[in-house]
Design a protein around this nucleic acid. Structure first.
Lengths: 111, 111
DNA sequence: AAGCGTTATATTTACAAAGAAATAACGCTA
DNA sequence: TAGCGTTATTTCTTTGTAAATATAACGCTT
């Protein structure tokens, strides 16, 4: 007894990872902070790492997920697109459902 | 369109990983080959790596998962316990159910 | 009693992934 | 027009994990 079950899910496009838990957290942070650099800092992640992940997501998704601007007031910034918000909420919903489902499964197993 | 969803599940005991996909495959190989070294070779894995994984599983599971013997005819060997077989089949069943469930979830999302 | 293939374990080496640092470009602000 | 904070990108360094190597012990077999 005392077993628990955990999971990680991710969405793929053409066999490559589009979106996992880490990338969703990063997208959410961009939405909250309005810039890639602030989002990276809030997650204890380097700017380069954050940018690389977002670049991959943006390139593989059916539609852009963030829009960014260089220069100007505050130096620039980045924000989520409506499609980005849609992806986040779909991922969160499916992920939560999966956790519930697995908890049920382990409960009904006889381990 | 064209998104697919993937997952990895694992069973934890006291916050530490007991069993994931790789360890289940290894256990299965031990059951098929009758020794750790043959199982490791069949999976392209070093003996040490295989032994370490099996040692962790054996230590954390509620009951031993493999039983091994040193020396003797053929040098020794290892075999699955009945509990080990039970763990494997439970994991496989839950994992398969999870895949089906997630496929359904992504189909019913509007991504 | 010597040899074999195995389990069991420690130590060292290699490598890939993550992180850090450096640089350029951009467009507002003052 | 000089400065600021940001995006965007390359290169170098570090580090943590995986792999390779080495060694001992064990108990059948011949």
């Amino acid at each position: 007894m005392g077993y628990s079950i955990k999971s990680r899910i991710w969405i793929e496009k053409d066999g490559k990872i589009l979106l996992g838990e880490g990338r969703v957290n990063l997208l959410r942070a961009v939405g909250e902070h309005g810039s890639i650099s602030a989002a990276a800092k809030s997650l204890g992640m380097s700017y380069k790492k954050a940018w690389s992940l977002l670049d991959a997501v943006n390139a593989r998704a059916d539609q852009p997920v963030i829009s960014s601007s260089i220069g100007g007031a505050g130096g620039g910034g980045a924000k989520l697109t409506a499609y980005g918000e849609k992806l986040i909420s779909a991922f969160d919903r499916i992920n939560g459902n999966c956790w519930d489902y697995l908890d049920e499964q382990i409960k009904n197993s006889n381990l």
